[in-house]
Protein backbone atom coordinates (compact mmCIF):
# COMPACT_ATOMS: atom_id res chain seq x y z
CA UNK A 1 0.00 0.00 0.00
CA UNK A 2 1.41 3.36 -0.93
CA UNK A 3 1.34 6.20 1.54
CA UNK A 4 -0.89 9.06 0.55
CA UNK A 5 -1.03 12.75 1.39
CA UNK A 6 -4.67 13.39 2.16
CA UNK A 7 -6.26 16.82 2.47
CA UNK A 8 -9.12 16.75 5.00
CA UNK A 9 -11.67 19.53 5.33
CA UNK A 10 -13.45 19.94 8.64
CA UNK A 11 -10.45 18.28 10.27
CA UNK A 12 -11.03 20.26 13.44
CA UNK A 13 -14.60 19.04 13.70
CA UNK A 14 -15.83 15.85 15.32
CA UNK A 15 -15.93 13.40 12.42
CA UNK A 16 -13.09 15.11 10.54
CA UNK A 17 -10.64 14.88 13.41
CA UNK A 18 -11.35 11.18 13.93
CA UNK A 19 -10.91 10.54 10.22
CA UNK A 20 -7.62 12.45 10.24
CA UNK A 21 -6.37 10.37 13.19
CA UNK A 22 -7.42 7.16 11.49
CA UNK A 23 -5.56 8.18 8.33
CA UNK A 24 -2.39 8.85 10.27
CA UNK A 25 -2.74 5.54 12.09
CA UNK A 26 -2.66 3.89 8.66
CA UNK A 27 0.53 5.72 7.76
CA UNK A 28 -0.88 8.49 5.59
CA UNK A 29 0.04 12.15 5.84
CA UNK A 30 -2.79 14.54 6.63
CA UNK A 31 -3.05 18.14 5.46
CA UNK A 32 -5.81 19.97 7.30
CA UNK A 33 -7.85 22.46 5.31
CA UNK A 34 -9.05 24.88 7.99
CA UNK A 35 -10.39 28.40 8.35
CA UNK A 36 -7.65 29.65 10.64
CA UNK A 37 -4.39 27.80 10.12
CA UNK A 38 -1.60 28.13 12.66
CA UNK A 39 2.12 27.95 11.94
CA UNK A 40 2.92 25.54 14.78
CA UNK A 41 -0.12 23.28 14.40
CA UNK A 42 0.76 19.59 14.87
CA UNK A 43 -0.28 18.86 11.30
CA UNK A 44 0.30 20.90 8.15
CA UNK A 45 -2.60 23.33 7.74
CA UNK A 46 -3.83 25.29 4.74
CA UNK A 47 -6.36 28.11 4.79
CA UNK A 48 -9.68 26.95 3.43
CA UNK A 49 -13.10 28.51 3.51
CA UNK A 50 -16.06 26.93 1.71
CA UNK A 51 -17.10 30.34 0.44
CA UNK A 52 -13.75 30.87 -1.28
CA UNK A 53 -11.56 29.33 -3.91
CA UNK A 54 -8.61 27.16 -2.96
CA UNK A 55 -5.54 27.54 -5.12
CA UNK A 56 -4.66 24.17 -6.70
CA UNK A 57 -0.95 24.91 -6.72
CA UNK A 58 -0.91 24.90 -2.91
CA UNK A 59 -2.26 21.34 -2.93
CA UNK A 60 0.11 20.38 -5.73
CA UNK A 61 3.15 21.74 -3.89
CA UNK A 62 2.21 19.71 -0.83
CA UNK A 63 1.88 16.60 -2.99
CA UNK A 64 -1.77 16.07 -2.04
CA UNK A 65 -3.18 12.99 -3.76
CA UNK A 66 -6.26 12.30 -1.66
CA UNK A 67 -9.17 14.46 -0.54
CA UNK A 68 -11.74 13.84 2.15
CA UNK A 69 -14.33 16.57 2.23
CA UNK A 70 -16.09 16.62 5.59
CA UNK A 71 -16.73 20.32 6.17
CA UNK A 72 -20.24 21.75 5.94
CA UNK A 73 -21.15 25.27 6.94
CA UNK A 74 -24.19 24.94 9.24
CA UNK A 75 -24.36 28.69 9.86
CA UNK A 76 -26.22 29.15 6.58
CA UNK A 77 -30.00 28.82 6.91
CA UNK A 78 -31.62 29.84 3.63
CA UNK A 79 -31.59 27.43 0.69
CA UNK A 80 -29.88 30.09 -1.38
CA UNK A 81 -26.92 30.60 0.90
CA UNK A 82 -26.61 26.89 1.77
CA UNK A 83 -26.36 26.14 -1.94
CA UNK A 84 -23.99 28.97 -2.66
CA UNK A 85 -21.61 28.24 0.20
CA UNK A 86 -21.84 24.49 0.65
CA UNK A 87 -22.66 23.06 -2.75
CA UNK A 88 -20.79 25.61 -4.87
CA UNK A 89 -17.94 25.72 -2.37
CA UNK A 90 -17.66 21.93 -2.51
CA UNK A 91 -17.63 22.00 -6.31
CA UNK A 92 -14.84 24.57 -6.24
CA UNK A 93 -12.90 22.39 -3.82
CA UNK A 94 -13.37 19.26 -5.96
CA UNK A 95 -12.18 21.12 -9.04
CA UNK A 96 -9.17 22.60 -7.26
CA UNK A 97 -8.24 19.09 -6.13
CA UNK A 98 -8.56 17.75 -9.66
CA UNK A 99 -6.62 20.70 -11.08
CA UNK A 100 -3.86 19.92 -8.59
CA UNK A 101 -3.52 16.46 -10.07
CA UNK A 102 -6.38 14.70 -8.30
CA UNK A 103 -6.28 11.27 -6.70
CA UNK A 104 -8.88 9.55 -4.56
CA UNK A 105 -11.67 11.91 -3.58
CA UNK A 106 -14.23 11.19 -0.88
CA UNK A 107 -17.22 13.34 -0.14
CA UNK A 108 -18.75 12.80 3.28
CA UNK A 109 -22.48 13.18 2.78
CA UNK A 110 -25.26 12.01 5.09
CA UNK A 111 -27.77 9.24 5.30
CA UNK A 112 -30.33 12.04 5.12
CA UNK A 113 -29.34 12.65 1.50
CA UNK A 114 -31.60 10.81 -0.90
CA UNK A 115 -33.85 11.61 -3.82
CA UNK A 116 -36.99 13.09 -2.31
CA UNK A 117 -35.33 14.25 0.91
CA UNK A 118 -37.45 16.84 2.68
CA UNK A 119 -34.74 18.71 4.58
CA UNK A 120 -32.64 21.33 2.83
CA UNK A 121 -29.63 19.64 4.38
CA UNK A 122 -30.53 16.35 2.72
CA UNK A 123 -31.43 17.94 -0.61
CA UNK A 124 -28.31 20.01 -0.95
CA UNK A 125 -26.05 17.20 0.26
CA UNK A 126 -27.72 15.09 -2.45
CA UNK A 127 -27.02 17.75 -5.09
CA UNK A 128 -23.41 17.93 -3.95
CA UNK A 129 -23.19 14.12 -4.10
CA UNK A 130 -24.12 14.25 -7.77
CA UNK A 131 -21.28 16.68 -8.41
CA UNK A 132 -18.86 14.45 -6.50
CA UNK A 133 -20.00 11.35 -8.41
CA UNK A 134 -19.59 13.10 -11.75
CA UNK A 135 -15.98 13.74 -10.84
CA UNK A 136 -15.35 10.09 -10.00
CA UNK A 137 -15.32 10.55 -6.22
CA UNK A 138 -16.54 8.22 -3.52
CA UNK A 139 -19.61 9.37 -1.61
CA UNK A 140 -19.96 8.22 1.98
CA UNK A 141 -23.33 8.53 3.70
CA UNK A 142 -22.83 8.13 7.44
CA UNK A 143 -25.80 7.35 9.63
CA UNK A 144 -26.35 8.99 12.98
CA UNK A 145 -22.78 9.27 14.28
CA UNK A 146 -22.38 8.03 17.84
CA UNK A 147 -19.29 7.97 19.99
CA UNK A 148 -17.73 8.59 23.38
CA UNK A 149 -17.70 12.34 22.97
CA UNK A 150 -20.28 12.79 20.27
CA UNK A 151 -20.55 15.89 18.09
CA UNK A 152 -23.17 16.84 15.56
CA UNK A 153 -26.81 16.16 16.29
CA UNK A 154 -26.06 13.48 18.90
CA UNK A 155 -23.82 16.02 20.66
CA UNK A 156 -26.75 18.43 20.81
CA UNK A 157 -29.00 15.70 22.19
CA UNK A 158 -26.45 14.84 24.88
CA UNK A 159 -26.20 18.47 25.93
CA UNK A 160 -29.97 18.59 26.23
CA UNK A 161 -30.31 15.45 28.34
CA UNK A 162 -27.47 16.61 30.56
CA UNK A 163 -29.17 19.95 31.19
CA UNK A 164 -32.83 19.03 31.42
CA UNK A 165 -34.49 16.77 33.99
CA UNK A 166 -37.43 16.38 31.64
CA UNK A 167 -36.46 15.45 28.10
CA UNK A 168 -38.80 16.06 25.19
CA UNK A 169 -38.63 13.27 22.64
CA UNK A 170 -39.75 14.54 19.29
CA UNK A 171 -42.07 12.70 16.95
CA UNK A 172 -43.19 10.73 20.01
CA UNK A 173 -39.79 9.02 19.86
CA UNK A 174 -41.02 6.65 17.23
CA UNK A 175 -38.79 7.70 14.35
CA UNK A 176 -36.20 5.05 13.63
CA UNK A 177 -32.63 5.92 12.74
CA UNK A 178 -29.54 4.04 11.57
CA UNK A 179 -26.60 4.80 13.82
CA UNK A 180 -22.89 4.27 13.23
CA UNK A 181 -20.00 4.31 15.65
CA UNK A 182 -17.64 7.23 14.95
CA UNK A 183 -14.62 4.94 15.26
CA UNK A 184 -16.11 2.55 12.70
CA UNK A 185 -16.87 5.39 10.31
CA UNK A 186 -13.39 6.86 10.48
CA UNK A 187 -11.85 3.44 9.87
CA UNK A 188 -14.09 2.87 6.85
CA UNK A 189 -13.16 6.21 5.36
CA UNK A 190 -9.44 5.83 6.01
CA UNK A 191 -9.53 2.48 4.21
CA UNK A 192 -11.65 3.77 1.38
CA UNK A 193 -9.04 6.36 0.48
CA UNK A 194 -6.68 3.52 -0.44
CA UNK A 195 -9.23 1.90 -2.72
CA UNK A 196 -9.15 2.12 -6.50
CA UNK A 197 -11.56 4.66 -7.96
CA UNK A 198 -15.14 3.52 -7.58
CA UNK A 199 -17.31 2.14 -10.32
CA UNK A 200 -20.28 4.40 -10.96
CA UNK A 201 -22.83 1.95 -9.50
CA UNK A 202 -20.88 1.32 -6.33
CA UNK A 203 -19.64 4.83 -5.62
CA UNK A 204 -22.13 5.56 -2.84
CA UNK A 205 -21.23 3.91 0.43
CA UNK A 206 -23.85 3.96 3.19
CA UNK A 207 -21.92 3.82 6.43
CA UNK A 208 -24.58 2.85 8.96
CA UNK A 209 -25.74 -0.17 10.90
CA UNK A 210 -28.71 -1.79 9.20
CA UNK A 211 -30.33 -2.34 12.61
CA UNK A 212 -32.49 0.65 13.31
CA UNK A 213 -32.92 2.34 16.63
CA UNK A 214 -35.84 4.52 17.57
CA UNK A 215 -35.16 8.04 18.79
CA UNK A 216 -36.58 6.99 22.12
CA UNK A 217 -34.02 4.19 22.39
CA UNK A 218 -31.20 6.46 21.32
CA UNK A 219 -32.02 9.01 24.02
CA UNK A 220 -32.34 6.28 26.66
CA UNK A 221 -28.99 4.80 25.72
CA UNK A 222 -27.38 8.25 25.88
CA UNK A 223 -28.73 8.70 29.41
CA UNK A 224 -27.55 5.26 30.42
CA UNK A 225 -24.11 5.56 28.86
CA UNK A 226 -23.41 8.86 30.54
CA UNK A 227 -24.87 7.69 33.85
CA UNK A 228 -27.22 10.60 34.11
CA UNK A 229 -29.62 8.80 36.41
CA UNK A 230 -33.34 9.21 36.05
CA UNK A 231 -34.76 11.40 33.35
CA UNK A 232 -38.36 11.80 32.45
CA UNK A 233 -38.93 11.35 28.75
CA UNK A 234 -41.93 13.12 27.33
CA UNK A 235 -43.01 12.11 23.84
CA UNK A 236 -44.02 15.20 21.89
CA UNK A 237 -45.08 15.98 18.35
CA UNK A 238 -42.16 17.55 16.43
CA UNK A 239 -44.14 20.24 14.63
CA UNK A 240 -44.43 22.81 17.48
CA UNK A 241 -40.72 22.53 18.23
CA UNK A 242 -39.90 22.98 14.56
CA UNK A 243 -42.18 26.02 14.41
CA UNK A 244 -40.52 27.57 17.44
CA UNK A 245 -37.04 27.05 15.97
CA UNK A 246 -38.15 28.36 12.59
CA UNK A 247 -39.55 31.50 14.22
CA UNK A 248 -36.32 32.05 16.11
CA UNK A 249 -34.36 31.71 12.86
CA UNK A 250 -36.67 34.15 11.11
CA UNK A 251 -35.91 36.59 13.93
CA UNK A 252 -32.22 36.10 13.27
CA UNK A 253 -31.42 34.22 16.49
CA UNK A 254 -28.49 31.82 16.27
CA UNK A 255 -29.25 28.53 17.99
CA UNK A 256 -27.41 25.28 18.38
CA UNK A 257 -30.25 23.36 16.84
CA UNK A 258 -31.62 24.30 13.46
CA UNK A 259 -35.19 23.75 12.36
CA UNK A 260 -33.90 21.98 9.26
CA UNK A 261 -32.23 19.34 11.48
CA UNK A 262 -35.63 18.47 12.91
CA UNK A 263 -36.97 17.97 9.38
CA UNK A 264 -33.96 15.86 8.55
CA UNK A 265 -34.34 13.75 11.70
CA UNK A 266 -38.06 13.25 11.27
CA UNK A 267 -37.92 12.37 7.57
CA UNK A 268 -35.45 9.56 7.17
CA UNK A 269 -34.88 7.69 3.95
CA UNK A 270 -37.61 5.04 3.95
CA UNK A 271 -35.55 2.57 1.92
CA UNK A 272 -31.85 2.99 2.56
CA UNK A 273 -29.45 0.48 1.04
CA UNK A 274 -26.51 -0.51 3.18
CA UNK A 275 -23.00 -1.13 2.10
CA UNK A 276 -20.70 -3.77 3.47
CA UNK A 277 -17.61 -2.51 5.22
CA UNK A 278 -14.82 -2.18 2.71
CA UNK A 279 -12.44 -5.11 2.43
CA UNK A 280 -9.00 -4.16 1.25
CA UNK A 281 -5.69 -5.84 1.33
Amino acid sequence: MSRLTVAVTGAQGYAGSLIANALEARGHTVVELVRRPKIDAPRKQVMFDLSQQLDPSVLRDLGVNGLIHVAWDFKQVTSDTIRRVNRNGSIRLFDSFLAAGGGTGIFISTIAAFDGAKSLYGQIKRETEQEALQRGFWVVRPGLIQGDEPGGIVGVMLKLVKKLPIVPVLGYGKRVLNPIEASVLSKWVSQLVEAPPPSVEAAIVVAARPERQSLDEIVRSLIQKNQLGRRLLIPLPWQPVWLALRTAEALGLKLNLRSDSIISLMNQNPNPTFSDPPVFS
Partner: peptide
Amino acid sequence: RRDLAPFYEG
Protein backbone atom coordinates in the same frame (compact mmCIF):
# COMPACT_ATOMS: atom_id res chain seq x y z
CA ARG B 1 3.12 35.01 14.51
CA ARG B 2 1.38 31.64 14.46
CA ASP B 3 -1.69 33.35 12.99
CA LEU B 4 0.32 34.41 9.94
CA ALA B 5 0.44 30.86 8.54
CA PRO B 6 -1.88 31.67 5.60
CA PHE B 7 0.53 34.37 4.33
CA TYR B 8 3.23 31.78 3.75
CA GLU B 9 1.09 29.41 1.70
CA GLY B 10 2.46 28.52 -1.70
